[in-house]
């Protein structure tokens, strides 16, 4: 549980993104249609389909980045709690 929050550094994120598959085993999602699209050999509708597919792969990576960032953020917020407690104690004593 803690590891889920602890292992959220940039290196962990890079490794997690690398582990994402592009449409199945052996990156099946990058098939001849994608190559044709790059070569400019696809009709408009087919090109849009390929672009939507690639957009999906990038969206997966972005979602992963946001998820890692949020977890990291929670970790920082959790670190704020003892600091704020000490602060509150000090202010109470001073009063």
């Amino acid at each position: 549980m803690i590891a889920k929050y602890r292992k959220t550094g940039p290196d962990h994120l890079a490794a997690a993104v690398r582990a994402l598959t592009l449409g199945g085993r052996a990156d099946d999602g990058v098939d001849h249609r994608v190559v044709d699209w790059v070569m400019g050999g696809l009709a408009e509708s087919a090109a849009r389909d390929v672009e939507a597919r690639l957009n999906g792969y990038l969206q997966e990576a972005a979602d992963l980045g946001r998820s890692y960032a949020q977890r990291r953020c929670r970790l920082w917020l959790a670190a704020c709690v003892p600091v704020l407690i000490v602060l509150a104690v000090l202010l109470t004593l001073a009063a």
Partner: peptide, 16 residues
């Protein structure tokens, strides 16, 4: 993918 993941990561991280 790495680039967009880093961008998204960076956007949230500053808050904490």
């Amino acid at each position: 993918q790495q680039q967009v993941a880093r961008d998204a990561y960076g956007k949230w991280l500053w808050l904490g």
